[in-house]
Amino acid sequence: MPPTGITEADHVVVIQLTDSHLFADPAARLLGLDTHASLQAVIDDVLANQSRIDRVLATGDITQDGSESGYRRFIAAVERLPAPCHWIPGNHDDAVLMETLGRPTGLWQDWIDVGSWRIVMLDSSVAGSVAGHFGEQQFARLDAALSSAGDRHVMVCLHHHPVSIGSDWMEPLGLRNGQRLLARLDGADQVKVVLWGHIHQQLDERRGNLRLLATPSTCVQFAEHSTDFATDTLAPGYRWLKLFNDGRIETGVIRLAAGSFLPEEGASGY
């Protein structure tokens, strides 16, 4: 039941899954971790603890190897959830293949209108690059989404972090023209939140009236504020968001039980 004073008509519920890093080979592991099993365990938690879901957002690095089999394994996993899923690519993904698979099914959309909100899905991936960048096509998509949003509140989704996260090794691996994106959003009052993945850790900051959110991976976690690549012992997780009709946001991160799905100690080569 919703809390007193809140009805289902007041808001929509969004679940973010990110950085699942699936493989074509079911036996493959990422830093010793079974990414398919951890994704399924996260989905089990969503099903057990989220009584209502209106949309599922998958914010990149769906696969580790860009394989069609990996994407189909992801699709089969999220079909367990009772809401439509929409995805965007990350640096490990094949964006062309994701669009080919996703356009006919609704997985790939430029934006989604749900309740009083518009969710804009931007592609920050660059073929052959770990870092992200928005080309003119993505800025045009953003401009089109904002100019046609009407009275809707807006959430912008991408894979790469557009701000510094205080981690030296990840500093050059974010959105290379993040400041241009943020400058564009500074002038768009209807944009309330920017949501991303990529950093395999939790973040919740503000830039003026703009909420900046990042979410743990459904598999391996990265240590915060690290100079060099380092994993963490925190468990995989996901983010829930309540997007209210008046533009307010409630959100939180839920993780699996402590000690679940740890990478091999000292594993590297990500």
Rank of each mutant, 00 (worst) to 15 (best):
L158I: 03
L158N: 02
L158M: 15
H159C: 10
H160Y: 04
H161V: 04
P162W: 00
P162R: 00
P162I: 00
S164C: 05
I165P: 05
I165M: 03
G166N: 10
S167D: 11
S167R: 13
D168R: 14
D168V: 12
D168C: 09
W169A: 09
W169F: 14
M170Y: 06
E171V: 00
E171F: 01
E171R: 11
E171M: 04
E171L: 06
L173H: 03
L173Y: 03
L173A: 04
L173I: 03
L175P: 03
L175Q: 00
L175S: 01
R176V: 04
R176Q: 14
R176N: 08
N177E: 06
N177P: 10
G178A: 12
Q179C: 11
Q179S: 15
L185C: 07
L185K: 08
D186W: 10
D186E: 15
G187C: 05
Q190S: 15
K192Q: 12
K192Y: 04
K192A: 13
V193W: 08
V194N: 11
V194G: 12
V194D: 12
L195Q: 07
L195A: 08
W196P: 05
G197C: 11
H198R: 07
H198F: 03
I199K: 00
I199H: 00
H200G: 03
H200S: 09
Q201R: 12
Q202W: 09
L203Q: 09
L203D: 03
L203I: 08
E205W: 06
R206A: 11
R206H: 13
R207M: 02
G208I: 01
N209R: 15
R211Q: 11
R211I: 02
L212A: 01
L212C: 03
L212H: 00
L213R: 04
L213E: 00
A214H: 01
A214F: 00
P216Q: 05
P216M: 07
P216H: 06
P216G: 05
P216N: 06
S217E: 07
S217Y: 05
S217Q: 08
T218G: 05
C219A: 15
V220H: 10
Q221H: 07
Q221I: 07
Q221P: 15
F222D: 05
A223Q: 15
A223I: 02
E224S: 10
E224Q: 11
E224F: 01
E224W: 00
S226G: 01
F229G: 04
A230H: 11
D232Y: 02
D232T: 02
D232E: 09
A235W: 12
P236A: 13
P236F: 13
G237E: 10
G237D: 10
G237C: 09
Y238M: 06
R239K: 12
R239V: 10
W240Y: 14
W240C: 10
L241G: 10
K242G: 07
L243F: 13
L243N: 07
D246I: 07
G247S: 05
G247N: 05
R248E: 14
R248D: 14
R248I: 03
T251W: 07
G252N: 15
G252A: 15
I254F: 11
A257G: 11
A257C: 06
